[in-house]
Design a protein around this nucleic acid. Structure first.
Length: 678
RNA sequence: UGACCGAUGGUGUAACUGGCAACACGUCUGAUUUUGGUUCAGAAGAGUCCAGGUUCGAGCCCUGGUCGGUCAACCA
């Protein structure tokens, strides 16, 4: 029912089409096939949500299959972590499978291939084989062992299996087509010898199947109907199908591979190899460092599984390259935590506030609501006394018009407590503020219902009572990289873009005493600051909180904008001339030109004139015929023409006709430019 | 230089067999608010890479181009 109005992604279209073509829906079956060589990241979450989401939508089983065909890279630790992460995301797999469970079947099929003359044992070096492979534009040459007799192949393959050869000395290859335009079809390797203990099969095997040989056949064995993978496997599809053809029995279901684009996130990297590099170089503390885009990192940071699933849902799935802005992820976690996190008060950068007319030694216990978004979430108690901490940023001696917080002579509310008025400051020799003195209005207690408690003020501050506050360490995180797409630069390594300030540790933050009982996985909103959760490093005596994400902060934004404006603007990077033809740039700019006005319009016109210097008449001439309704393009053309004629280009009949047609156009720019030339 | 894939606001995705380009994030207003949060109301922002063609009508179909990506590991 909820689906009725929803639009489908292209994967769902494929399935719907199969269904309407008669594919029985009860045979739908999917799989998520990670290699256990690293931790899952938010990109995998897209694939997990896709496959398991499909399973939920079509009520079909989804297998978790570990693609464990390379014992040199894979470890049990990763298997465990992957299972933990998927379970945490809230998905249930139908079967826990391993490619290694199929080693015998795969071996038997390989023997069959040899017997049919479709596979042979090669004994060349990897260099020789690479050499013979050719290039994408030139065909390969056959191996000298390609025509080895079947009996000999059988015998050698048997010996490979028995461990009679050293690693790297022999291979089993499929005999397909060394001239195929698809490199993967040029006699791909089926088996290689690896002398390493496998995390499940131990030393039972010393020959291991390659990905292509194992993957499609595993799908087939499990009777997976739709096998979804990322775009870089598109070229493998032909081989996937070829391998399937060799073993396919028409009574059984034939799996179908389709590809989608991997999900990239801005300001981070998203490949296991690069994430491993961050871990190994100790840029981060581990795979679950809260700055990592791994599922475990996000979890430790305080993200909920709900928010990650929501993110995958909103980001969608398609076939084009993408870099999704982290702001979408942040939106998802804020939206979730806003409804669920308990509101508390904590002061991260304290300054002492003394309420001069509040009795010394007196303590009041105030009630504070746990979550205003959920009226039935109850309240908790907060002690209030004469000496408090407030944030240093919440006070300015002379705030000015747009400063809603505490300043001298001004009144603000202390959250859930009283109204106070700034009276004076105590400073040290060099002018640092040591204490702020204020007075409070005893009639204004929050919730008392008194008239005084209902006054309207612009500012409300959070606070903690100094004598009751508990200390804690707070870790704040910023993006790991300073560049939006750190791994998209050919000439630079992604490590060069690391943000040196991605972690800020506040050793002594002051929290309201309620937080002493916080436990792992509790989610809190430190009011006016952001969402926080306990880190796994936390102990009862030494609390450690992670900042998950800040609150939206229009005040901070205003402030930084002022700062940015007062600094000289960095010049726009030099035009990447030659990257794209000048004429193309002109077309790109000019199509939008009718939407512009004022300064922006001028800038656009000028940059067209600049590009025009690099356009030849031969390039421009075809555009004289541009349809009359495409005013923008025509403006670009006439501007370019203007520059050309100025540079000595002679007019021909086409030019004259074009100028004529512009003279009668409705658009003012077009007309006036044409008049200059008439 | 080959083969394959892709191109829709700043970002990510929609638009079922052609029919006024939609949604979300982000941005900007205003209102509300005991969080400069939330919520609510609204706005700006895309002539769908370019040029032709077919059509009454093209983001979608056809032709030609441009740009970007992928493919030549005994990795997956």
């Amino acid at each position: 029912m909820k689906e009725s109005a929803e639009s489908l992604n292209f994967i769902e279209h494929i399935i719907e089409e199969d269904l309407t073509n008669g594919f029985p829906s009860e045979k739908l079956r999917f799989r998520f096939p990670p290699e256990p060589n690293g931790y899952l990241h938010i990109g995998h979450a897209a694939s997990i949500c896709l496959n398991f989401g499909l399973g939920e939508k079509y009520n079909a089983p989804v297998n978790l299959r570990f693609d464990d065909t390379n014992p040199a890279k894979e470890e049990q630790e990763y298997v465990d972590a992957i299972k933990r992460d998927i379970a945490w995301l809230g998905f249930k797999w139908a079967n826990e499978c391993y490619s290694s469970d199929y080693f015998q079947q795969l071996y038997d099929w390989a023997v069959m291939l040899i017997k049919e003359g479709k596979a042979y044992v090669d004994q060349q070096t990897s260099e020789q084989i690479a050499e013979q492979k050719g290039t994408p534009s030139t065909s390969g040459t056959p191996s000298p062992f390609r025509e080895r007799p079947i009996d000999e192949n059988l015998e050698l393959f048997e010996k490979m299996k028995k461990g009679e050869f050293p690693a790297g000395s022999y291979l089993l290859r499929a005999k397909i087509d060394m001239a195929s335009p698809n490199m993967h079809m040029r006699d791909p390797i089926l088996y290689r010898i690896i002398n390493a203990a496998h995390h499940r099969t131990g030393t039972n095997w010393c020959i291991y199947p390659m990905y292509d040989w194992a993957h499609g056949e595993s799908d087939y064995i499990e009777q997976v109907s739709h096998s979804f993978c990322t775009l870089e496997f598109k070229a493998h599809r032909e081989l996937y199908d070829w391998y399937l053809d060799q073993v396919y029995d028409s009574n059984l279901l034939r799996p179908k591979q389709r590809e989608f684009a991997r999900r990239n996130l801005s300001y981070t990297v998203m490949s296991k190899r690069k994430l491993l590099e961050l871990v190994q170089n100790k840029v981060v503390v581990g795979w679950d460092d809260p700055r990592m885009p791994t599922i475990s990192g996000l979890r430790r940071r305080g993200y909920t599984s709900r928010s990650i699933r929501k993110f995958s849902d909103l980001a969608g799935i398609a076939k084009r390259d993408n870099v999704t802005d982290v702001s979408l992820l942040e939106f998802c976690i804020r939206e979730d935590l806003n409804k669920t996190a308990t509101r508390v008060m904590a002061v991260l950068n304290p300054v002492k506030l003394v309420i001069t007319n509040f009795p010394e030694g007196k303590v009041e216990i105030l009630e504070m609501e746990n979550n205003p978004e959920q009226p039935d979430s109850g309240t908790h108690e907060v002690p209030f006394s004469r000496e408090l901490y407030i944030e240093r940023e919440d006070f300015k001696e002379d705030g000015g018009k747009n400063f809603f917080r505490l300043s001298l002579g001004n009144e603000v509310r202390l959250k859930s407590a009283y109204f106070i008025k700034g009276e004076s400051v105590v400073k040290d020799d060099v002018g640092n503020i040591l204490e702020i003195h204020c007075t409070y209005d005893p009639d204004s207690r929050s919730g008392s219902g008194s008239e005084a408690s209902q006054r309207k003020v612009k500012g409300t501050l959070h606070w903690v009572s100094i004598s009751h506050a508990i200390k804690a360490e707070v870790r704040e995180y910023d993006r790991l990289f300073l560049e939006e797409a750190p791994d998209s630069h050919e000439e630079k390594n992604f490590m060069e873009f690391l943000n040196p300030n991605s972690l800020t540790i506040i050793k002594e933050a002051y929290l309201e005493p309620f937080l002493a009982d916080a436990i792992l996985d509790d989610k809190y909103q430190f009011q006016r600051l952001g969402y926080f959760t306990l880190d796994q490093d936390s102990t009862k005596s030494n609390l450690v909180f992670n900042k998950t994400v800040g609150l939206k902060d229009t005040w901070a934004k205003q402030n930084t904008e002022v700062q940015v404006q007062s600094q000289p603007k960095p010049q726009a990077p030099a035009q990447p001339q030659g990257q794209r033809k000048a004429l193309n740039e002109i077309q790109q700019i000019s199509k939008k030109i009718t939407n512009l006005s004022g300064e922006k319009l001028e800038t656009a016109l000028n940059s067209i004139r600049e590009y025009a210097e690099d356009v030849t008449f031969e390039e421009l001439e075809p555009l004289f015929g541009t349809a009359a309704k495409k005013t923008g393009t025509r403006i670009g053309v006439i501007l370019t023409l203007n520059v050309m004629l100025k540079n000595g280009q002679a007019k021909n009949q086409a030019v004259i006709d074009f100028i004529q047609s512009c003279l009668t156009d409705e658009n003012d720019i077009l007309r006036s430019e044409a008049e200059k030339l008439a």
